[in-house]
Design a protein around this nucleic acid. Structure first.
Length: 190
DNA sequence: TCGAATATATAAC
DNA sequence: GTTATATATTCGA
């Protein structure tokens, strides 16, 4: 890898940032209301994983990410750069990629699918470098409450609120603070 | 290597 | 509602 580029875009009240490698593959993505926090997060991720500091560039992937955030569809051709995630993380993200739009699954069901434990799945989902592109917001607790969500690396109430909004825009039905059981998707296909 | 820290699940009160 | 305990993976001293 020769270089990394960092691209930022603002749509309505949020900033969207992507880190792409020299083959235009997505290394990491992040979003949030605060541009400085967003950029700092992506630069630190870049430094920790590759020892490269990215240059500032334009990239259409940032706008695509905004589209996903506001309920649009992904253009199918986004390539993810796999080199900075563990084998265990890859397994988890493969399962997440199969969750249909408008459905959710739980940390426990994902862990059964790959013969691991729910807590380990939680850690892997929390460290997803490609939020929105890998739909980690579609994983919730076994009690069907929304659960936690990190933005720029930190989980908080704001994150959980955003997670719920994402799910609602995708058509996931809520009953009060819980998700309707009809929206549950089981990765084992039963 | 080991101990602590997780975006958990389950059972018990 | 609250604990207590089991659990897999990761990270740092």
């Amino acid at each position: 890898m020769k270089k990394l580029d960092l691209a930022l875009d603002k749509v309505r009240e949020n900033w969207f940032g992507v880190l792409v490698d020299d083959e235009d593959r997505l290394v990491a993505s992040a979003f949030g209301a605060n541009k400085q926090i967003l950029e700092k997060y992506l630069r630190e991720y870049s430094w920790k994983t590759s020892d490269l500091q990215p240059t500032r560039e334009e990239n259409p992937l940032a706008a695509e990410m905004a589209s996903l955030f506001y309920g649009g569809k992904a253009s199918s051709s986004v390539k993810l750069s796999p080199q900075y995630v563990s084998p265990f993380q890859s397994q988890v993200y493969h399962v997440l990629g199969r969750i249909p739009v408008g459905k959710i699954t739980t940390y426990g069901l994902v862990s059964k699918e790959i013969r691991s434990g729910p807590r380990a799945v939680g850690s892997a989902v929390a460290s997803n470098p490609w939020p929105l592109f890998v739909p980690c917001h579609r994983v919730v607790t076994s009690g069907l409450s929304v659960g936690n969500y990190s933005m720029c690396g930190t989980p908080d109430a704001e994150g959980s609120f955003t997670k719920r909004q994402l799910l609602e825009r995708e058509g996931v039905p809520f009953l009060g603070v819980k998700i309707a059981p009809s929206a549950l998707w089981n990765p084992s296909g039963e």
